[in-house]
Design a protein around this nucleic acid. Structure first.
Lengths: 340, 340
DNA sequence: CTGAAAGCGCTAACAT
DNA sequence: ATGTTAGCGCTTTCAG
């Protein structure tokens, strides 16, 4: 049988209240008593019971983490890393994290994660784009929520976001710095706020340098940011405008797909065409040439999210704070100075 | 404020004990009372409190799921799928699953998952190979454990395993059926029971057909089952014996790496050399040619594991049951009849 | 600075 | 068939 608070109290000749105060680091316990109690705790291998604590404090001690199934199973461990960061951070808090995968298909979104139906979490982290319907359904339960790498249309939610606007600018700026002026943008799922912001950054960087922006150099009709869509985007891009010397792809998957197309038609990267991606995904260093990209701090985003939800639950802050995570240019070999 | 059992009792004019019996589906409640109580529960949106239940039943209601960090972050969502299966299955049970990543580096394995230190799980699922030290440390806590796709050296644990022996035989058999007789085996991490069994299956299939087995056709010195190791294995293999017409790689990653090597040196797959892998990983259909492989039911393995640990906790079975999951040959285009 | 006691929401004897 | 009641292990007033 596991030791309880009573055992500790008995062993150290104090009341259970005192033991409770000790394990909760209450300052109004004398040094000696504390030491005595701590010793007993150690000797007995005592661990406070979660359920007892949760019962009296009316909390569950859990944070729910919601992810769509396809994000979780994606080949690139993007959201997986965010989860990892959140789980690591949780170790510093009194929280456990309950991961629940939901279908990305909004048609079957009547079903919320079990932990919300059963009220078994104190707060929720939602990573990546999820069906709006999920969010509306969730709203009825009024759990504190923080979003990661996504932001629903209605306002007023806490979120940890990538500084996509700035990242889009930096990426484009890098291409400009390399001497390029005919720079294309490959987008996909323009519904996604992140992609829109990266596009916005692209346009701003061009504008800032007085470079002309042309819709002929923009692909925004692909519906997903996948490798295949990058491949086809590259193909249509060249048909629209074959003067292009550089490309900013809205993410690495599309960049890699585009690279594949160019290589297949005999173009040299970066000699004939420079490509920069976004995300800094594991695959980047396995392709040839290694992909220049914008690094996003995935693990950190997870821990920030956990810290944020924790602060909200402690009522240290209200539930609308937003955190913008900085991105970094990672120079590899898919971009180079324009020769001529 | 959430409704409690008292509110339900009051609203339906019964005692809280009766309500308790109803929500626990006790049969000795009259139909009418049950209906009355159910109605009140519905009206109030009542949900039993987990912590209260757990407190009195002395359980945590959680299952711990342990995975090494690198398995979790692997590009191929192999263990991720197993987790997904486990989480889905948990929805049918009274359990939540707590996922914890540990370092694969045994040197820093003094630190057990927090949920074991804090006694917050009723049982544990361990997926994939983990440091032996973790297992020894864990043993002191005497949690029921079920292993998935790995099995520690000491016996007596429950496990959900792939039928690797049979799979290895089937894979090799397929190559033999295609007319091959000079069949090589590419292994990696021969410490891993799964790999050893696949190798064993390979040898048995050869033997069964009276084909000679030769160490010249076996690579067992690679230390990891990665793509890069598959690449280098293919290279050394050809140096050892260039008569080979077919290869059974112990997993898809190595098979794909080997394919890459062969393509680079100008060999045609499958015309010049047939390759079969193992695992049926997402990447398989993206390579050229698509890889013939042995399919392993990853999601099912997760749910089997959850079901198993659940049965153990219900004392329906003891903790040493083993489940062998069947594998299936998936014919794609990397293997073909031997022409001559 | 420490202890007594109430009570969190529920289950499980034990009564009736 | 249903109700009474005693805890489960802990936190938290409230006294002292």
């Amino acid at each position: 049988m596991r030791a309880t608070i009573k055992d500790v109290a008995k062993k150290s000749n104090v009341s259970i209240a005192t033991v409770s105060l000790v394990i909760n680091n209450n300052k109004r316990i004398s040094h000696n008593t504390r030491k005595k109690v701590l010793k007993a705790i150690d000797a007995l291998g005592y661990q406070p019971s979660r359920s007892a604590r949760d019962l009296v404090s009316r909390k569950s001690g859990n944070i729910g983490f919601i992810l769509t199934e396809d994000h979780f199973l994606k080949t690139e461990p993007f959201y997986t890393q965010i989860f990892l960061g959140a789980e690591f951070e949780a170790r510093q808090h009194p929280y456990y994290v309950l991961l629940s995968m939901i279908s990305a298909d909004s048609s079957q979104q009547n079903t919320l994660p079990r932990f919300v139906l059963e009220n078994s979490v104190d707060g929720i982290i939602i990573a990546g784009k999820v069906p709006e319907e999920l969010i509306t359904n969730l709203d009825k339960y009024s759990f504190p929520v923080v979003f990661v790498d996504y932001y629903p249309s209605e306002n007023g939610h806490a979120a940890v976001l990538i500084d996509n606007l700035n990242g889009g600018m930096q990426a484009t700026q890098h291409l400009i710095d390399c001497g390029h002026s005919k720079i294309a943008f490959i987008g996909g799922d323009m519904e996604h706020p992140s992609i829109r912001d990266r596009f916005q950054g692209y346009k701003m960087a061009l504008e800032k340098k007085g470079l002309s922006f042309s819709n002929e150099r923009v692909i925004n009709t692909e519906i997903a940011t996948s490798r295949e869509n990058g491949y086809s985007a590259a193909s249509t891009l060249l048909k629209k405008d074959n003067q292009i010397t550089a490309i900013f792809a809205c993410n690495d998957a599309m960049a890699i797909g585009a690279m594949q197309y160019f290589k297949e038609i005999g173009l040299q990267i970066p000699a004939d065409i420079s490509i920069i991606g976004f995300d800094d995904v594991q695959m980047d260093i396995l392709v040839d040439p290694p992909l220049t990209t914008m690094q996003v701090p995935k693990v950190d985003m997870g821990s920030e999210a956990m810290r944020l939800i924790s602060e909200i639950l402690d009522h240290k802050i209200n539930g609308t704070k937003k955190i913008l995570m900085p991105v970094n240019l990672i120079l590899r070999n898919s971009t180079c100075k324009l020769e001529n």
